[in-house]
Simulated assay, not measured.
Amino acid sequence: MRILCIGDVVGSVGCNFLRSKLPTIKKIKAIDFVVCNGENSSDGNGITPTSAKFLFDSGVDVITLGNHTFRRKEAYEYIDESPFIARPANFPEKTTPGTGILNIDTGRRIISVINVMGNMCMDNNLNCAFETVDRMLEKAEGKIKIVDFHAETTSEKRAMGYYLDGRASVVFGTHTHVQTSDCQILPKGTGYITDVGMTGTIHSVLGVKTEIIIEKLKTKLPARFDLASGDCKMECAIFDVDEKTGLCINSEALRIE
């Protein structure tokens, strides 16, 4: 089975570029299942029902989220009701809209998608990511298990990869918007990449106009994050998973412009 994992889609610019490229990539690469991080898919951070529907209509099967999940209150009910959106599982279960694990029945197989957020340098007091992912794995019904680990530091992401090695089919990192060069298969058979990258404007700072971020870093003052325009990229990774074992047999990082 060929699984495509797409890095953080930034705003309408990223959404439109994804729509222009995804159908062709799915056809050329014979993709069976698409997971996309959409926590920044709405202009001005967060996700809205409109941006989520746009991604689904473009060919995405499952949307994962992150630290900007609940920026837009108009999305709360949609996240809570959608069977194809996973939010970080380490938010409090009883009071947080949505779920941290999806068991997707594709007709031929069940695919479990888990979303977990890191603790290091993330300015949150969420439950331990490692304990949380263990709880989610107990709820996973599929042989194929995909984990989006939305985290800041490469050390925490690498640690999570090895922690899940042999227990998850794929672990892909999101949040830092810069694709890393370590797309690989770990020793026990888990496909892994520290950060799958970003879908949005190439000449930007994480999708935002460069001059805004530079000024904010220099002055330390708040700033409105306006999206950059121009040529775009879609950074992603393809993982081939053996359906009998649930383990990865091939991995490939891509940058599509």
Rank of each mutant, 00 (worst) to 15 (best):
M1Y: 11
R2M: 01
C5D: 04
I6M: 02
V9P: 06
V10P: 04
V10Y: 08
G14E: 15
G14Q: 10
F17K: 13
L18W: 13
R19T: 15
T24K: 12
T24G: 11
T24H: 12
K26M: 15
K26A: 04
K26R: 15
I31N: 11
V34D: 09
V35H: 09
N40M: 05
S41I: 10
D43W: 12
N45H: 13
P49V: 13
T50P: 00
T50L: 11
T50D: 14
S51K: 03
F54D: 14
D57Q: 14
D57N: 15
V62M: 07
I63G: 09
G66I: 05
N67Y: 02
T69R: 05
R71F: 10
A75R: 06
A75G: 05
Y76T: 11
E77H: 10
S82F: 09
N90P: 11
N90S: 03
E93P: 01
L102S: 08
I104R: 00
D105A: 00
D105M: 00
G107D: 15
R108V: 03
R108N: 10
V113S: 01
N115V: 02
C121T: 01
C121P: 01
D123L: 02
A129K: 04
A129P: 10
F130Q: 00
T132E: 11
T132L: 03
K139T: 00
A140I: 07
E141S: 05
E141W: 04
E141Y: 05
K143T: 15
V147Q: 03
V147T: 08
D148R: 12
F149W: 07
H150Y: 14
H150L: 02
E152V: 01
T153D: 02
T154H: 05
S155E: 04
E156W: 13
M160G: 06
M160P: 06
G161M: 10
G166W: 09
V171Y: 06
G173K: 01
T174D: 08
T174N: 07
T174H: 08
T176K: 06
L186E: 14
P187C: 00
P187R: 02
G189A: 03
G191Q: 01
Y192P: 05
Y192N: 04
I193N: 06
M198L: 09
T199I: 09
T201V: 10
V205A: 01
L206I: 15
G207W: 11
I213R: 09
I213D: 09
E215D: 15
L217H: 13
K218M: 12
K218T: 04
T219S: 15
K220W: 12
R224G: 12
F225E: 01
F225L: 14
D226F: 05
A228L: 03
E235G: 03
I238C: 02
F239Y: 15
D240F: 00
K244D: 15
G246D: 07
C248V: 07
C248K: 05
I249A: 00
N250H: 12
S251Q: 11
S251C: 14
E252K: 08
R255M: 14
I256L: 10
I256G: 10
E257G: 15
E257L: 09
